[in-house]
Structures are given as structure tokens and as C-alpha cells.
Simulated assay, not measured.
Amino acid sequence: MSLVGDKPIIGIILDENTSQGGASYDTGKGYFRAIEKAGGVALGLPYAPESLDFARTYCAGLMSTGARIKFPSEWYVPGQESYAPQSDRFAIERALVETFLAEDRPYLGICNGMQMLGCLSGCRMSGDAKSYTDGSIAHDDRTTRHGLKVTSGTKLHAITGLDHLQVNSFHREALVEISDQVIVSGFSDDGLVEAIERPDRRFALGVQWHPERLIDETADADALFGAFVTAASDWAKASRLPPSTL
């Protein structure tokens, strides 16, 4: 039941207002608009155990949004840890991502979602991204636009058709140790890992920037969501699930 008509249902993990105690879900509309523009049906997933059952039943794809939540200390390089707030998002998000990866359902991780993909695939993070750069790019700044080198032969390269992108950037943490389970598909011009993918999955891709904010500015942002929705549609049709009656 992962199609509405011929449109795949995409589950989107909701964000929350962690800066105000996490009392409210607080997710940008851009995530939903990007999926809808690409031809999918976007549904928000709250932090409840039932979200996992719902997603497995109805969702052909999963998208993880940006966030600043505490990750386990062992996901960081030695001597570092997260200073972000605790969130009940972590447990359900981890369960969702692990399930979709195990079942080879399409997954797109944005910002926090890329870090989740990376750490569940053996990578490690730093909570101080700027210490791994020359300081030429202000990564934790919503107004920043910077260059990104796309790795030839990757899924991201095939999707965008470009060797170089202009992206936004607002993050304090970054993946700095990369495992052999993933390949790096994009580096910022100052050397930070900004995109990864799992070559052993049909579509498991993470980006550090926020392409949902660029869908009216750059064709590559549209192309990324289009490829994700197409992969979800293909998965749903291959699974021979009937259209949803939702």
C-alpha cells in the first residue's frame, strides 16, 4: 500500500524545537513541498513506535530531516561527543533508518539524516566541523552558499550530471572518518564530506546541505528529489503492493 494512485508515499521524520525543550514538532514545509513537487506523497512520521509499523506498511521511501539532537558518544571520533540536546527522536529515527536500509527501500538523509546514515554505516563524526577546514567557509550560517565537488562515477554525479554544485550550508557537526561501507560523493571546497551514498543499496544517499531550500533555485536540487521519488516508485511497483486506500 505504498502508492496513492501512481504516486509513492514518502515518510518524512519530523523535526522538533529542541531549542525550546522539544515540546513541539517543528519541521520546515520545504521538505514536504520538495517531495510533492517531485511527484510523491509526503507524510510526517512522529516519534512513536507505531511510526515504524506505519512506515513499513505504507511508505515506499524514507526521508530524514535536519536536526540537532544528541548522538551516542561512540559515533564520534575519540575525545569528542555531542553537545546537542537529548531527543526521543533518536530511537525511532534509528529504527526507521536501519529497517529501510535492511529492506533496501529508498532512503534520503538531509543534514542530520546524512550523519545518521553515515554512523549507522560505520563512519564517525566530529562536533566541531570547522576544526577540519581552513575556515574559508562559514558552514554554520543559513545565508552561506559554497562550492561542492561531486565525485565522478557516483549516484549523485549521475543524478545531477554536474562536477560542481553551489549549495547552502548550516551545520556544526560533520562526518570526518569514513568507513568502507559508504563512498563519498561530494566534498565542500574546503574539504568537508558533504555527500555520501551506500553503493550496496538501490538508493541510500545522504547530503549535508539542505536541498529542500534550493528547489526553486537550482536544477540539481530538483533532480535529487526527483531521483529519490522515482526510486521509491520503482520499489513500490516491484513489490507489487496495491495502491493505498488512505
Rank of each mutant, 00 (worst) to 15 (best):
A23E: 09
P243G: 14
D141G: 15
A91F: 04
W209G: 07
S136E: 11
L156I: 04
L120D: 01
T144N: 12
S82G: 03
A236E: 05
G161E: 11
F187H: 13
N17I: 00
P46E: 11
V207T: 00
N168Q: 08
R33H: 06
Y76L: 04
A60P: 04
S24F: 03
L241T: 13
A102R: 04
E212L: 12
A158K: 02
S2P: 13
I12W: 11
R240V: 05
V167P: 13
A204P: 07
G11P: 08
D6L: 01
L156R: 01
N17Q: 10
T218P: 13
F54W: 12
C119H: 02
V77I: 11
P72Y: 12
D180C: 00
K37M: 09
G30C: 11
K237G: 12
E103P: 07
G39M: 07
L175V: 13
R68I: 02
T143A: 13
S169F: 10
D140K: 04
T230H: 11
G66N: 07
K29R: 11
S19R: 01
L43E: 14
A223W: 03
L224D: 14
A231F: 00
R56N: 15
V176P: 09
V41R: 11
D180V: 00
L14V: 05
T144Q: 13
D26G: 07
F32E: 11
R89V: 04
Y76H: 12
T151H: 15
D128V: 02
A91D: 10
D15I: 03
G161I: 07
T65Q: 15
A42S: 12
L214S: 10
W209C: 09
Q20I: 06
T18Q: 06
R124Q: 03
I215L: 06
S51H: 08
R201N: 05
A95D: 05
G79I: 13
E16I: 03
H146P: 06
A232H: 02
G61W: 06
K7N: 14
P242G: 05
G22L: 04
R145C: 02
D134H: 12
L192F: 01
C119R: 14
D104R: 03
T57I: 10
L101R: 08
S64G: 05
E197L: 03
K7Y: 04
M116F: 06
K130V: 09
D180T: 00
D222T: 09
F54K: 13
Y107M: 06
S73I: 14
I110E: 14
S152T: 12
C59E: 10
F170G: 02
P211Q: 15
E50C: 06
